[in-house]
Nucleic acid binder design. Structure first.
Lengths: 194, 194
DNA sequence: TTATTTTTTGACCATGCGGCCAGAAAACAA
DNA sequence: TTGTTTTCTGGCCGCATGGTCAAAAAATAA
């Protein structure tokens, strides 16, 4: 992949993120993204297989960055409680500094569909995420930090609580994201405690 | 409103719920809803101001039924913990018997947009719901059943946990909804406990 | 410079949607 | 029965979208 190709793709992705965050998925047409980037619509089709590939590329890039951050923070933790708190707090901290990306991500998650009109992302796509969360809670149960409870229900609840935190912050920018994250960490710590 | 008018509206609403649940919002066009009901497309336009009114009417009707059920069950409760459990368990119980409605509701919540393309339902529409949930938790704090915590964060988390339970069940029909609801009730009871 | 390949343009197309409407049909009234 | 209102039909329209394409432009190679 040539240098100019890489640069164009990056430019288009950046433009798409900004358009998604500011006008929402429905109005983030290829035409709007192209106009915002100052290029012709056909360029997007030339560099991406289609709108879907562009959207998925955005998700992949943002997710990769988040994962890097969270994994790095998790390194130093050796207790389940510590991992739990770190997981929640580090994601919140990261998104706090990348609000535009969060908004774009939300738009894509809530709107991108496959050919049959079914959501591209959603509960059916979260299996990997659930298993990661379950891993932490299972670890806590094995060390005796946590009581016995249904791992899958806990993972679903945990995951949705974090999503809801961001969704609320997306709509209410003045909301204190870090404080919310600390409350959440307390909540799950207590809910799981023996 | 005439008898035939009322009957047609009910028929159209029922048809729309079934179509929404089975093929999703994107494919639930007026044409599809009309065909499924065995009537002409124009009838829908004749009896409803537009697709949006139809969708909002569906939400109102289903919500009303849920509220009736939950409020009736809440009558006998006098402790915050009891209200909490009843609230979660009765909603789950109701939706367990009305899966089609739940699916349709989910489709509308996740897809209906206003003229500017912004979601019709979402975090910005939940204020009333949040206040209702906060009311229960505040009551529990005042009676000394619950510890001190941020009411808004608790309401957001509680609400999203219930939504996520349904979303997961929507995708995984074999999932034990009642068991999930009991687990959730335990979680929130412990998370809020002193 | 000339030839070749890569990249960009902007018009064009097919598609699917919600909504509209003139006229037919049905229900109702006189 | 006849006239009037309500209800229904099915074709049509405007609109916006994502994607395509021939031709132009730019970059690169010979």
């Amino acid at each position: 992949m040539s240098f100019i190709e890489e640069a164009r793709r990056a430019q288009i992705i950046a433009s798409a993120i900004e358009v998604l965050a500011s006008v929402g998925f429905a109005k983030a047409s290829l035409a709007a993204i192209a106009k915002h980037a100052g290029i012709s619509k056909g360029v997007i089709s030339y560099h991406f297989a289609g709108k879907d590939e562009l959207m998925e590329e955005i998700v992949t890039q943002i997710y990769t960055k988040i994962a890097e951050r969270v994994i790095a923070r998790l390194e130093g933790q050796d207790t389940a409680v510590g991992m739990l708190r770190t997981y929640i707090l580090s994601v919140a901290e990261h998104m706090r500094d990348h609000r535009t990306q969060l908004l774009a991500l939300g738009e894509i998650f809530h709107n991108l569909r496959d050919a049959e009109g079914k959501p591209r992302y959603g509960a059916h796509t979260n299996e990997e995420l659930y298993q990661g969360i379950e891993h932490i809670y299972r670890f806590g149960q094995s060390t005796g930090e946590f009581r016995a409870f249904d791992l899958r229900v806990m993972a679903i609840t945990h995951s949705s609580a974090v999503d809801a935190m961001f969704a609320y912050w997306a709509v209410t920018p003045d909301h204190d994201l870090d404080a919310h994250a600390r409350e959440l960490a307390d909540f799950f710590e207590r809910a799981a405690a023996k």
